[in-house]
Amino acid sequence: MCDTCGCALPDHRHAPERDARSIEVLEGLKTHNDRLAHHNRTHFDAAGVLVVNLMSSPGAGKTRLLEATIEALGGRHRLAVIEGDLETENDARRIRAKGIPAVQITTGSACHLDAAMVHEALPALPLEALDLLFIENVGNLVCPASFDLGQHANVTLLSTPEGDDKPLKYPVMFRASDLVLVTKSDLLEVLDDFAVDAVAAHVRRLACPAPVLEVSARAGRLDGWLHWLEARLEERRRPRFHPVPSTGDGHLLSRPRGLA
């Protein structure tokens, strides 16, 4: 467990005064992280790159999904990946083998990425030459949801062997999601205790409007995921509108930013 998110703090249930100090320290860490995340997002927005944070438990298929996504989109969009793991460069090597820039962050004992780690990785990437940057967070259904990295969207993967009740067991993670992907959906034919409808119902119970889509990198069933990405990319390309004063009729007009 790590010492940057509080999951390694000792049990303070019988020491309220120490609880207060721990909360103060954690709030300070989160405030600092949020400032850095805002700074990262400023970089991403200036470069015009869409940043998607992938979160899941270990083994849910994040890297395999990225490989399949690169194969599907690599010819149409400029992609890169930041990989997060406690140790090894295994996942980054897999991404580079697809001809895509990848930076590996090894966190040591930290069970999640944070904004500072991502910021340190950015100089190794050609941000101005990218359309889409994926951040593959450390495999963990708890801590990554609490740390803003500067991303524009959170995508949570839930693999069918894990069980369809995970949104109820890990509500913070799924409540923070902009999209939920049920991965390894090709196994639904042999798993009689997993229902995609149940996952969607659990997500709605959390008051989360995120779509729930089935994908299978192995079977090549990625259409919903790819359409979602294309829609987010299209949103990034649209001119932003901002109000400008009219010429005296009391109304405000809008025009694309940067246009005269």
Rank of each mutant, 00 (worst) to 15 (best):
D3I: 12
D3G: 11
G6T: 03
C7S: 13
C7Q: 14
P10D: 09
D11P: 10
D11L: 09
D11I: 09
D11F: 10
H14S: 13
A15Y: 10
R21H: 12
S22W: 14
L26Q: 11
L26E: 08
E27T: 13
L29Y: 11
K30C: 07
T31Q: 14
N33P: 06
N33C: 06
L36Q: 13
H38V: 15
N40H: 08
A47G: 07
V49N: 08
V51G: 05
V52G: 03
L54V: 02
M55E: 04
G59D: 00
K62V: 01
R64D: 09
R64L: 08
R64E: 10
E71R: 15
A80K: 06
D85H: 05
E87H: 15
T88L: 11
R94T: 11
A97S: 14
V103G: 03
T106L: 08
G108Q: 08
H112Y: 04
L113E: 04
A115D: 09
A116K: 14
A116Q: 15
M117P: 05
V118Q: 09
P123T: 12
P123Q: 12
P126Y: 13
P126L: 13
N137L: 03
V138N: 02
G139S: 04
P144Q: 03
A145W: 05
A145F: 05
A145N: 06
G150L: 07
H152L: 05
T156Q: 04
S159Q: 01
P161Y: 01
D164P: 02
D165V: 01
D165Y: 02
K166S: 00
P167G: 07
L168T: 06
K169G: 03
Y170H: 11
P171Y: 03
M173P: 04
L179H: 08
T183P: 00
K184T: 01
D186M: 02
D186R: 01
L187V: 01
L188Y: 00
E189W: 04
V190Y: 01
L191R: 04
V196Y: 00
A198F: 04
A198L: 04
V199T: 01
L206V: 12
A207D: 14
C208Y: 09
C208I: 08
P211Y: 11
V212S: 03
L213F: 03
V215K: 02
V215G: 02
A217T: 02
D223F: 10
G224P: 03
L226N: 06
A231R: 14
A231Q: 15
R232Q: 15
L233V: 09
R236M: 12
R236K: 14
R236V: 10
H242R: 14
L252K: 10
L253E: 15
R255T: 09
R255L: 14
P256F: 09
G258R: 10
L259E: 15
L259W: 15
